[in-house]
């Protein structure tokens, strides 16, 4: 129950707190250590000595629970899609997504392949797109600085309501399957008891 997120109008307390949160969250972005393909090598190069990510307070965390940013470095295949979606959903709020490389933006060199999704924004709300195949480390740093600006400039007041809409890509809102909407928490999970708790319950007896 964050007072900044739930607040409707910008009072004195919420604005100062909001400014503080924006400053803190933009200065310390921890990406998930999720390497998929060739762009993950350029991501590691940016973490290594010459282009050092740590200068901007960006430290790789392997568990999504402690991460803020999900950098998607590479093409998303049909088999990888539920994995990346689950990792994104298991990240704690507030979270952002960077689509790194043209494969993550539009399928890139494999756009006509039968197994590659046309970009990761078909199932994730992407904040920053970094073109390139693979994008140079400087491009990745520039993308992260752009995200830093976006976090520092957008207010978090009343973002709880807005976030809910943000989860589902706005233009595809209608045709989304209910099951996926339930997973995102847009549809209340309780009324379809078989849907919401399905995966937890089903796992229990199968094990």
């Amino acid at each position: 129950m964050g007072i900044v997120d739930r607040a409707e109008e910008a009072g004195f307390i919420t604005t100062t707190l909001d400014k503080l949160l924006r400053w803190g969250r933009s200065r310390s972005m921890w990406p998930v250590n999720a390497g998929i393909a060739c762009c993950s090598l350029e991501m590691m190069t940016t973490g290594a000595g010459r282009y050092d990510f740590d200068r901007f307070g960006i430290m790789f965390r392997s568990s999504p629970r402690q991460a803020d940013v999900l950098i998607v470095p590479g093409p998303i295949t049909k088999k990888m899609q539920p994995i990346v979606q689950r990792v994104y959903n298991q990240m704690a709020e507030p979270r952002w997504v960077i689509a790194m490389g043209s494969c993550a933006i539009s399928g890139g060199a494999f756009a006509d392949s039968y197994n590659v999704l046309p970009g990761c924004d078909t199932f994730l709300p992407v904040d920053v797109y970094i073109p390139g195949c693979p994008p140079r480390p400087e491009a990745l740093i520039y993308g992260c600085l752009k995200l830093k600006e976006q976090i520092a400039n957008t207010s978090f007041i009343g973002s709880a309501a807005r976030n809910k809409a943000l989860y589902v890509p706005p233009d595809l809102g209608e045709e989304w399957p209910d099951e996926l909407l339930r997973q995102f928490g847009v549809l209340p999970a309780d009324d379809s008891s078989e849907g919401g708790s399905r995966d937890v319950g089903e796992v229990r007896d199968e094990g």
């Binding site: 088999k79 006509d112 392949s113 039968y114």
Partner: peptide, 21 residues
Amino acid sequence: LQPDDATTFPLRKSFELAETP
């Protein structure tokens, strides 16, 4: 290689790819 619920056998000539964009 393909997801377990896939039904197609892509490398057969009968399987048509989307045309190169």
